[in-house]
Design a protein around this nucleic acid. Sequence first.
DNA 1: CCATGTGAAAGCGTTCACAGCG
DNA 2: CGCTGTGAACGCTTTCACATGG
Lengths: 239, 239
Amino acid sequence: MLGSVSPRHTIEPMPAAPPGPRPLPEATVRRLPLYLRALVDAIDERQLMLSSEELAARAGVNAAQVRKDLSHLGSYGTRGVGYDTELLRQQINRQLGLTHEYNVAIVGAGNLGQALGNYRGFTERGFNVVAAFDTDPDKVGRRLGSVVVYPMAELPQVVGEKGITMALITAPAHAAQDIADRLVAAGVTSVLNFAPTVLNVASHVSVRKVDLAVELQILGYYEHLRNDRVTSPKVASAN
Amino acid sequence: MLGSVSPRHTIEPMPAAPPGPRPLPEATVRRLPLYLRALVDAIDERQLMLSSEELAARAGVNAAQVRKDLSHLGSYGTRGVGYDTELLRQQINRQLGLTHEYNVAIVGAGNLGQALGNYRGFTERGFNVVAAFDTDPDKVGRRLGSVVVYPMAELPQVVGEKGITMALITAPAHAAQDIADRLVAAGVTSVLNFAPTVLNVASHVSVRKVDLAVELQILGYYEHLRNDRVTSPKVASAN
DNA sequence: CCATGTGAAAGCGTTCACAGCG
DNA sequence: CGCTGTGAACGCTTTCACATGG
């Protein structure tokens, strides 16, 4: 699992789970956004219906998987026909909690923080970057995308006032844990960590990580593997 | 799986697998970079030995998992003692193919491309960004980190001359497939795709994807889930 | 008739628990 | 004695294959 989230449940006995509506399998949750994207594209192309086969092709997964995943949301397909694109889009949106918008902070106004502050994809999908923070006095006060960079000291107030629930950590690794602690203390409950470090947070907070160098290292492994396959049997496998 | 790579093996009958050395489980490959990071940190702190327990804590995983993963590389631990940090680092480096360096191109010199061109983490870990490309004439010729932005037309030559084997696609979604095709035609065999689209490539090419909005959507799901748990049993669960 | 929805089977990955060795 | 290395148990995910129903 690259982005390992798993809100630490599973270990705690779980307070006698209230009848709460849905606990989707984690693997399904990770794919719903892909289906959503595919559906939005299809709707833009005026497609009213889509079979699991077609949706699978657009999302880059297997058709049986699509059906299994969607069956967890309920029965929104029509046998012999397929899925109503608009209806399905709404259902997935609802499941993912995208019916309301989220306010997001960026902590660390370096290269990456600046790029993410300007990234249109967030706002387009309902994630509003409403504040940025940095310790560097030179960066404080500057603009980053459409928002101002605040000093770290103001984090608690700003998070409270702006109703920030999610944060991106784009600071150096050595600062990341401290930042996470402050964010959680201020009331943030979801963190996307770009720093190459493990973060320890309370169990009611979700953390996902994106480590860009790790992605390249993984690609490097397969690259390496292929090169060995080709060069070691000297005369090469006919092909 | 955030970045779903799986070089399309598994489907093709696989050309009667030559005795090739190692096919590590994919899940293990994804964690090796984490162990590597943890080991480098430990070495910086002059730690000569590390138990699976300690390594697990640093990497943010379970100790049994560490032992299982490392057992795939061979027996590099000492019973009753632990793992020699330096030795293990070398072994993981070797397995990941990090003994040689990789030359990387960035295609798309927008916000994200610029940020990644300036990202120090890549060079530090042996990935040299040696070229950038963009269609926009305004961007061509500018610097991006330490490299120059070339026009797309020069991609084939530059990829060949500079020995580029990996590429990051940081362009808009609608351009991504075409870019991937050109990269593959030019000889690139590993692609890290930041555009929110499925890429179709020949089976000898590895693709991983990083979709930042998807990460937030996944976090949004758990956020949403928690809020429902708290608000729907109105008087709230004693806790 | 055709594509969904779903049990059942197969495949992976993780965790347990302990034998074995330094 | 302590920690590694590992077989076996477990649980999750994917895939198969078909009964079901519009």
